[in-house]
Amino acid sequence: MQLLEYFGVLTGLLYLFLEIRQHRAMWVVGFLTSLVYVFVFFFSKIYADMGLNIYYVAISIYGFWQWTRRREVETAQNGEAAPSQEAILYRNMTPLLFAGICSAILALFALLYYFLHYFTDSPIPAGDAFTTAVGIVATWMLARRIIEHWIFWIIVNCVSVYLYYLRGLYPTMFLYICYAILAAVGLYTWKKKGIRTHDSTL
């Protein structure tokens, strides 16, 4: 199991590097990382995070399709591969979208906490529910290239470091320390080098 965890750490770091660069291969690497952590978290009794990684497996397919579709649209519109393909594109949350995102997180947290507290032997139901609820929404935000997803990940990763410390998952704890740092780098990189757009098809 520890070898599997170390493999997940390595692919997780590669995933985040590709995410910062907005390389669509990130979705393939993310698929593998998530699949590994389904088993790691199951045996560690971190059930909501296990479920979250099942969700990551599914949304990796959606994210790859979403980003590939966007590039195909650009190619069709320009008659050739668009020069802007390598650019980092992002959009911002609107107040209405922010309200919807917060409502979704609260609803997911309440549902997950209730399930974990009453129906599992999870030793950390509140923390597990929180990181899972925010992670579900933040991953959807990434698929839509919403830049504020980095802020959500910084918060989730910091909380996750403590949770994995409690469960003795020290390689994974190290991974999430790196995630927190690189999420801040990702936010800076997208803001500094990215192109803001209001294109709702992103």
Rank of each mutant, 00 (worst) to 15 (best):
I147K: 14
N53E: 09
L32T: 12
I181M: 04
R144S: 10
G186C: 11
Y176E: 05
M26E: 04
P95A: 03
L13E: 05
S44L: 03
Y114D: 03
I195E: 03
I61M: 05
I46K: 01
D49E: 10
I181K: 03
A110R: 10
T131R: 02
L163R: 06
Y37P: 06
V57P: 06
Y165W: 15
A87D: 08
A110G: 05
A104Y: 04
V156H: 04
L13F: 15
S103I: 07
Y118Q: 12
F43Y: 12
F130W: 01
L202K: 04
I46L: 11
G127N: 09
A104E: 01
L35F: 15
Q22E: 14
T139E: 02
M93H: 07
F119S: 15
Y114R: 10
V134P: 01
L182I: 12
L116Q: 06
E19R: 03
T139W: 05
T201K: 13
Y55M: 03
S34Q: 10
S200E: 13
F174C: 08
A82E: 11
F115C: 11
S200I: 14
A48N: 01
L13V: 15
C102R: 00
M1F: 13
F130K: 00
I195S: 00
H149W: 05
V40F: 09
I181P: 03
P171N: 04
V73Q: 12
T189W: 02
A138M: 04
Y164S: 11
R69L: 03
Y118G: 07
S60G: 08
L52M: 14
Y188K: 08
Y55G: 05
A126Y: 12
W140N: 11
K192N: 04
L182P: 05
R71M: 10
L10A: 15
L4M: 15
T139R: 04
I195T: 05
T75V: 03
Y55H: 03
M141Y: 05
D121I: 12
T68M: 11
I177E: 02
G186L: 08
